[in-house]
Amino acid sequence: MDVTIKKQLQKTACNIRMGVLTGTFHAKSGHPGGSLSISDLLTYLYFAKMHVDPKNPNMEDRDRLVLSKGHCAPALYSALAERGFFDKEELTHLRHIGALLQGHPCIHIDGVDMSSGSLGQGISAACGMALAGKLKSAPYHVYTILGDGEIQEGQVWEAAMFAAHYGLDNLTAIVDNNGLQIDGKITDVCSPEPIDEKFRAFGWHVIIMDAHDFDDIERAFNEAESITGKPVAIIQKSTKGKGVSFMENQVSWHGAAPNAEQYEQAMAELRQQLAELEA
């Protein structure tokens, strides 16, 4: 990847992470850990990959994204605000009464393609969108992001079977493999491993990706784009809480908001990262 572009994406990712913290801090609840692990992915998709137009959010041929792991809405909202779909100020009202930004993604928010949050459902809706694209010979691509804990839901595998059966090569599912879920390590709770072999067995093309390296992210999506006749699963190896030292790999940050002191510390760390990138 071009060095200048990469640096710009890294800076954008920093800003998106700051939005995640701002949102969950003001909400006094929410899910920062998994939001931070998909922040680089969302940065790449919304700033380097997807064909979307903030001025025309319902554009018919736009690429679509379904956040199947809907509890990571703070990252999606932050990315959409950064991209210009709505004012960043909205993040400070996340989860408040009367606010635009609901606790989980809602289709009525500009830029949000599907309501989601009840785990295992988003990938099915993404399949339906991809199927509609095939029926209409539309040029759009559909992305869906799943949690590695989420794939314990049986519906995910119903959808996986469906997508392969109908050859939905306009669908890419990204599994955020940060290894942690609410009750602990995914391998301790009820292991979904080996994730790659499962998707392969269901007829998908599988790519392993470093979730926090834009060169590798670009490589993975270029490979995904070259695949025809079958859907693609990208297993992104990620760090829960990525970018904030005290949140990294800590399951306790799955669904807890930072207090004022923690918020200041996290923001200071991210501002420092941003300053280093700008230096």
Partner: peptide, 17 residues
Amino acid sequence: AEANMMGVAAGLAASGM
């Protein structure tokens, strides 16, 4: 697989079908 079928229906409807 009725759960997936309902979700697929939702995605189709969200895309104009």
